Simulated assay, not measured.
Amino acid sequence: MTPQEVLPELKEKYRPVFEIDTHLNRLVKRIELLSYINPINTEKEKHRFFTAKYNLEPEFKYPRLKFDPYKLHRLFFSYRLDRIEDETLRELYKEVIYFYANMVQCIETIGSPRRFYFNSLRVYGTPRERDVENARFILHFEDEPSDGSMEKHHSPEAARAYFEAFAKAYDFPLQIRFSTHISARAMVSNSSQSLLIKRNAQFSENQLLTLAHHEIGVHLVTTYNGLAQPLKIFSNGLPKNVETQEGLAVFSEYMGGALTLKRLKELAYRVLASDSLSKGYSFSDTFDLIHNQYRLNREEAFTITLRAHRGGGFTKDGLYLSGLRKIYQRHLKQQAMEPMLSGKVSLDYERHIAYLTELGLAGEGPYRSLSFARNRNMNPTLDFILNNLK
């Protein structure tokens, strides 16, 4: 029996659960934070920032909201949770509602620095001192010599052809769209089940391999596994799912032989940028830290600073490295990855996933990440680093 083939008697027994799940699904379809958080005038403000010798605060503009935040927020709390008799399920959906409601508040306050930052903290948290120490540990390693795989000469159209060829090994549809309003070179839109490619970007061979394992090998796998589950919370996302999902995605890069020290350093810079933000530093202060103190080139330093400061203070980027550490530790313990690939789920809710599976309300999902089939990493430095993260 596949996850969606829930017996009619189970649907009847847990009718209130399916009702609230359907109710929340209708509401969540209206929101996707990443479609609002990326500035629409990035290039203009980057030019102003560089022209001013890095001594001004960029004035970013953001897409307009396509929903009424107050009305949507109220609708999240309109369903009576006491109809769910099972205490574990009732508490789960209570936490899910708070998570989605906080996401609405995040979107509503984009562009209002203090308000957005504190809403972002509730959803993503902030780097701990251990995370900052791990980031500094990684940055102590000497850069590896670059080779031809790092040269950016592939066009967005070539990237599309590469991803299409990579995805043929998976039995799910690959929808690809080009976009000018994303900060990453490529990313998955969970709501539209599509892979977005940045239209004006150039890609290296290594970046294509990295993005393929990251976006297709994990993010699209969990998107389609989530859609195959009986409950839509697996598709829309459990609370605290970002750290686990991004940890899985970067671990997929490692297993696929795509992860490099340069990429690991990029994740370390992101932690430092998020930490700088949490300490109250301005955009120019964070840029100074990454560019002048850590000597990262100004284009990459600007991108990392932008990712941390967009919206008014976005702490999501601090989770990639800690997520990788947790997933790598799970790998060392030879614990199964399949439950974490069953949808947009979190390690923090593994007990709930097991409980839902026991009730017949969840399953592993029909897709596996082919990146995890065997370890293709050939870089002993990466193994040493990952084995020594705190």
Rank of each mutant, 00 (worst) to 15 (best):
N25D: 14
Q334M: 08
L227M: 10
R122S: 13
I290F: 09
P3L: 05
S204D: 07
Y124V: 09
F287G: 08
L382M: 06
I84T: 01
L33W: 03
R307I: 14
E95P: 01
A158K: 15
Y170A: 05
T381I: 11
N38R: 10
E266R: 12
R130H: 00
L389M: 08
K11I: 09
D383L: 04
P58R: 04
L10Q: 08
F234A: 05
H140I: 09
A212G: 02
P156N: 10
Y117Q: 11
L121Q: 14
L65T: 10
K262W: 05
N206H: 11
T357W: 01
S252K: 00
E364S: 11
G343V: 01
I107P: 02
Y320V: 05
S371Q: 11
L7H: 15
L7I: 14
K168I: 03
R295P: 01
L389T: 09
G312T: 09
L27A: 05
A186W: 08
L289R: 08
L121D: 07
A362N: 01
K326D: 12
S78L: 05
E253S: 02
E144T: 06
E246V: 10
T260A: 00
R80L: 06
S276C: 15
K94C: 06
N225Q: 00
P16T: 09
R310T: 09
T180M: 00
L121T: 12
Y349D: 00
I290K: 00
Q193G: 09
F234E: 04
G280D: 10
K326E: 13
I40N: 08
E95G: 06
S191L: 15
R122K: 14
G312Q: 08
Q105C: 13
Y328H: 07
D131W: 05
L56K: 09
R64T: 10
D68K: 05
R80K: 13
E300D: 09
N102A: 11
P8L: 11
V104E: 08
L72Y: 07
S179T: 10
L227S: 06
P145A: 07
A52D: 11
A167V: 01
A336L: 09
E215Y: 02
I197G: 13
S346N: 03
A169L: 11
D86C: 12
D82K: 13
R295Q: 11
N375T: 00
G311L: 06
S322N: 00
L7D: 15
I84E: 02
E133C: 00
T260M: 06
K11L: 14
S120R: 04
K344V: 04
S278N: 14
H291L: 03
N134T: 04
Y14N: 01
G125H: 12
N387P: 03
F77D: 09
Y100I: 07
F203D: 06
G280W: 14
G360Y: 04
L227Q: 08
K66H: 14
R128S: 15
T305C: 12
V221Y: 01
Q335S: 08
F18C: 10
L267V: 00
S189E: 13
R83Q: 12
E108W: 15
S189A: 13
T88C: 02
L211P: 08
G148Y: 13
Y93M: 00
A135W: 10
S371G: 11
G312P: 06
E157W: 11
Y54K: 14
E144L: 12
G217L: 01
I138P: 06
F283T: 11
Y294C: 10
L361M: 04
S112D: 15
Y224N: 05
A354P: 03
F302I: 13
I197E: 10
E43G: 04
Y328K: 10
